[in-house]
Design a protein around this nucleic acid. Structure first.
Lengths: 186, 186
DNA sequence: TGCATATTTCGATAAGTATCTATCTTTACC
DNA sequence: GGTAAAGATAGATACTTATCGAAATATGCA
């Protein structure tokens, strides 16, 4: 979602972090040193940037190497140029379907799923809700997908399988991608 | 500055406001009603959006009509695509000139200018500092220029004249624009 | 001049989040 | 298994800013 990108970019520390990882890969210690911040703080900011896909991470032993994902930035830039995005901004949270009630019924107060509906209709509503939490056009590793699902339900396997089954997510060459809504199975 | 754009865009209310003013001109009351917020709140957000040039305002009687400035948005998008911007991000606040000391000497604790230096050298340093507070590529009305100067010193006339004199700002067809630094007179 | 209306500004409160220290987790190596 | 190193997470505190009601400002009109 557009808002999350701007929130991620709206802090001087994170913009500077992006500058460093645009230059070359950095690990957390290096970044903490160059920015004169403590490691947990840097880790926190990197987490937010990673969440929206602006940086990626590869692990080598206990060291985590972060680098910029320029694709994400250029996708963001292009979406700013598309006038359709703007028109949609005003309704940023009004998809006035009454599917919302169904979803709300399955959510705990902290926004996690109580369980997985038995009826096919409701099951699809839940999966739609979940699928919309993926960004279109972004690539997700299996770990990314699991992380996102686990924010809502511990059973990542079932949900991942169902999302693919309904053609909401597709796996190709080891990466997952959200499919356009018109492809989603009924 | 890039950071200010992201800060302006990093709030749901302001994104929704942009959506409305992208659709058509709106006044403050209309926006307050459509967003279910009070007028002072809307006014506050519009002020921030106006500050970075994302919206413009025209006044008709006591009514203020706000509309989107799509140019600003597309300039922002383009600057995101330019790789040079990114490299610069890490040094977001290190222009390690010792002109900074001169500037600091002329500033009150709240960041306003005590007075206007007598020596030409120092005067130029102050004007450079002031000129850099304008965005390159953006158009400023005379009122915009005055507002920006008055944040630093009440004597808007003198500073405006000097900025133009040093070719840091140029006036063309009723609008002001920041000139590239290589044009600035010594 | 004085009143009415639209907006902005001010001051207080509440919500959000950046940063730190301390602790927990993961990985490598003996 | 035990220990060390790198990073992540949790909890506390401080800073920033969103929001509101009340007061101030600006414009138009009798």
């Amino acid at each position: 979602m557009l808002l999350n990108f701007f929130k991620a970019l709206a802090h001087e520390s994170r913009l500077r972090l992006l500058g460093f990882v645009a230059e070359r890969e950095h690990n957390v210690q290096e970044l903490a040193a160059r920015m004169a911040l403590k490691e947990p703080t840097v880790s926190h900011h990197l987490g937010l940037l990673k969440e929206v896909g602006l940086v990626s991470m590869r692990q080598d032993g206990t060291t985590h190497w972060y680098m910029l994902e320029p694709k994400t930035l250029s996708r963001l830039a292009k979406s700013l140029l598309a006038p359709s995005q703007l028109a949609a901004l005003k309704g940023i949270d009004d998809q006035p379907t009454n599917d919302e009630k169904i979803v709300r019924n399955y959510l705990t107060p902290d926004g996690r799923l109580k369980d997985f509906p038995a009826s096919r209709k409701k099951r699809r509503v839940i999966l739609v809700w979940l699928a919309r939490q993926f960004d279109e056009g972004r690539e997700y590793s299996e770990t990314d997908v699991n992380t996102l699902i686990e924010r809502r339900h511990h059973d990542r396997e079932t949900f991942r399988r169902e999302l693919v089954g309904y053609k909401m997510l597709a796996r190709k060459g080891g990466v997952y991608r959200r499919l356009p809504e018109e492809n989603w199975q009924p």
